[in-house]
Design a binder for these strands. Sequence first.
DNA 1: AATGAATGAGAGTTCATTCAT
DNA 2: AATGAATGAACTCTCATTCAT
Lengths: 214, 214, 214, 214
Amino acid sequence: MARSRTPEKRSRILDAAVKVFARKGYFGARVSDIAKSARVADGTIYLYFRNKEDILVSLFDEVMAEHVAKGREELRGVEGAEARLLVIARHHLRLLGGNRDLAVVFQVELRQSTKFMERFTAGWLQDYLAVISEVIEEGQGDGTFRPDLSRKLATKAFFGALDEMVTSWILSPKHYNLVSQAAPVVNLFLRGAAASEKEERTQRALAAVGRGRR
Amino acid sequence: MARSRTPEKRSRILDAAVKVFARKGYFGARVSDIAKSARVADGTIYLYFRNKEDILVSLFDEVMAEHVAKGREELRGVEGAEARLLVIARHHLRLLGGNRDLAVVFQVELRQSTKFMERFTAGWLQDYLAVISEVIEEGQGDGTFRPDLSRKLATKAFFGALDEMVTSWILSPKHYNLVSQAAPVVNLFLRGAAASEKEERTQRALAAVGRGRR
Amino acid sequence: MARSRTPEKRSRILDAAVKVFARKGYFGARVSDIAKSARVADGTIYLYFRNKEDILVSLFDEVMAEHVAKGREELRGVEGAEARLLVIARHHLRLLGGNRDLAVVFQVELRQSTKFMERFTAGWLQDYLAVISEVIEEGQGDGTFRPDLSRKLATKAFFGALDEMVTSWILSPKHYNLVSQAAPVVNLFLRGAAASEKEERTQRALAAVGRGRR
Amino acid sequence: MARSRTPEKRSRILDAAVKVFARKGYFGARVSDIAKSARVADGTIYLYFRNKEDILVSLFDEVMAEHVAKGREELRGVEGAEARLLVIARHHLRLLGGNRDLAVVFQVELRQSTKFMERFTAGWLQDYLAVISEVIEEGQGDGTFRPDLSRKLATKAFFGALDEMVTSWILSPKHYNLVSQAAPVVNLFLRGAAASEKEERTQRALAAVGRGRR
DNA sequence: AATGAATGAGAGTTCATTCAT
DNA sequence: AATGAATGAACTCTCATTCAT
């Protein structure tokens, strides 16, 4: 008897794929590894996905669809560019910080080739960056953010900083909490690394004293 | 004496590898493609490299060795944390912005797998991040930089921002000048995206006027 | 159920391997030759055997398992060391004399390397020689065989003689019947090449006469 | 300056080849291994030998030429078929028992393929077997050996027995003296394994007593 | 729909041989 | 004569995909 294609089986395959891709890498992973991990036959994979690449692509698409939707949801009630950036950062770091395997796939395996990357850049990532960009625009509109400042560049810098937090976290043997970096990153992005003039004056004085003592 | 092993041939192979890896990706590149592009026989590759992976690793090691050495040189005469960060950013973006193929290999192909990435993270990248970290420490020491501010986090954010500039440049069809982004990135990193209080007040007033007019 | 792995296919591969190894030698034989001869795809070979060497080893193991089992069977009803040796010799020469390709594989290809030989010596060949050794021991026990006489040495000599019959038969262009050499070999092994004293006397006399005539 | 081809270098290569072939097998041995072991450049090998196979063939030819010549020498002063067989056996076992590597090459590597074997069988081995055959013929002529007895078969049996002594010795981890097996092998070949009638009677009696006692 | 045996193209690597020096 | 870098043909094995059951 023909059982019907279950969405449950599909997501079992995707879950298995995350695990296997994370452990062995996209090229190192065999389709049969994924099948075994999902407890289906090799051929069954091809009832749900066109080919190996399609598994990876579907993985990204589906996770991102949910991620962006939820992100929009969270953003809805939040006012102010700064607060909104914090929401984005927390959302981003929560997703990946909560699932190391998924993080590995997103930070490493999805960047296999320019082919993949172009695909993503043109798709979800575009949307994702657009959200950030809009918040920044909003901030510039209401005077919260500096009016000089390329919106594009700021968007990339913000995303790049977040992205590096994740990559660094993946590669670190320590299992620290990733979400807790959201606030400091946003703070740095907003205030910058330089001391304010007032702070700077104080600091210099202290430094001078320090030098004097020695 | 027989025809002697020339270092020239070795670097011809490495140059060819950059080209081929950039166009086809590491896994998509065949050793024979590299050989053909370097105008040597397939077997000759193996006189200079242990295997395909060794080509990629050597590529990275040798480019980085030179890059870091030159970077140290440039940094020598420069005083002040802010100026030094600018030197680093320009140096970074100049290297990759000057050779798209190399940039692709560094941004994409070298991040094939956690295996590779761990290797790099433990090696040159460590050194590279250490240089940035030292500059930030220095800036905190002399009061230029905010004393609160995790040095580690700031280092990652700065590197992440630069890294994203390069990745974005690679994927963009436009051929803009990458180095010109050094100053804005450093400025953003130092001053932050937020308007200063004074600026903010002005901005808000202007914004109010704007709203009033409509 | 998918097409099931048939033992028939496995033995088709083994049969093909015998043919191909015999004609081209183990190293000269390509796996694809065997595949073609067995009418399966190259990859199919690897569903049944770990690698090329495993084909050769399995070949030997399986043929020997059957050969030794059948030999034990035949030996069961036979009484007397001399008769038993004859059974062994006939059994040995029948196996190889009935399949020239198999004989080539056993006499030549399986002796490729000390690695192979040690493997075999430690395995089936050991068992095989043990059977001969037991028969000789039995013969010594019941007074049929000379009590002085190293059992080990006699075993090797008997096996060596049989072995050389096969090798010689393989290399000969003539297609004579190998089994018919069983009786003479056993006879030689038992009685020796020397004339008995009585025979010797007669022979000498005849010889003398012969000389006298010339 | 062109140094002249020295026969010393040639034999250095052959000696190296014996070692390398014995350790790695003919196919496992790389020409460069032999070159390194002989302390010459890879290319130099080809000034003395046509190709890899020619090294093996030359090895066999040259060792056999000397072996057969020396064998003829030794045989010269010896009278009587039995004594002559002993000389042959001792000579054979002395050559190979004195140089394990050479023995491995002769027993194993030279039997790589029917191609090799046919070559040898048609050449030196032919001569070698002919010597044995002649001695047997002589023994039959003077009444020492049984007149019924195929000369060919007896020759093969004798050679086969000797050959097996060597093979067995190679594969044994024990380092026993091979030459000491010459006399027992010849004895077995001449007298046979069976007890003489007189012996047999005595043995049976003893055996009966033995049974009675239990 | 599910299975998993079968397929066969494909690629990294080795190494005997050549030949410029 | 000697060298050893260079060559490139050759071959095993893997694995994504197909398809008979």
